[in-house]
Simulated assay, not measured.
Amino acid sequence: MPAETKKNRLFTTGELQVAGLAILTAVVLTLSVQVVEASVRPSLGLYDADPAAVAPIPDVIDARPVV
């Protein structure tokens, strides 16, 4: 009779625990990589500076559509 009351499951409890651990590890790894990248991002030079502090390039005007 115990075989009839046991649920038919696709995965065993151990397999579900391993899958959950793998998902948790992937999430933690992804978040930690994002935190590290945000804290040590490279300098963008002039592109990262305040636009008012950057001197304009000589002989360059605002782009306008060709009519």
Rank of each mutant, 00 (worst) to 15 (best):
E4L: 08
E4I: 03
E4M: 06
T5A: 14
T5L: 15
T5V: 07
K6I: 13
K6Q: 11
K6A: 15
N8V: 04
N8G: 08
R9E: 15
L10M: 14
T12E: 04
T12C: 06
T13M: 04
T13K: 09
T13E: 13
G14H: 01
G14I: 04
E15I: 01
E15Y: 01
E15P: 06
L16D: 10
L16V: 12
V18P: 02
V18K: 15
V18G: 00
A19W: 04
A19V: 03
G20R: 13
G20A: 05
G20W: 07
A22S: 11
A22Y: 11
I23G: 05
L24V: 12
L24T: 15
L24S: 12
L24Y: 01
T25Y: 09
T25Q: 07
A26E: 03
V27S: 00
T30R: 14
T30I: 11
T30P: 04
L31P: 01
L31M: 09
L31N: 11
V33S: 12
Q34V: 09
Q34F: 10
Q34M: 09
V36Q: 02
E37G: 10
A38T: 07
S39K: 15
V40D: 07
R41M: 03
P42Y: 01
P42S: 03
L44Q: 06
L44C: 09
L46P: 08
L46R: 03
L46Y: 08
D48R: 02
D50Q: 02
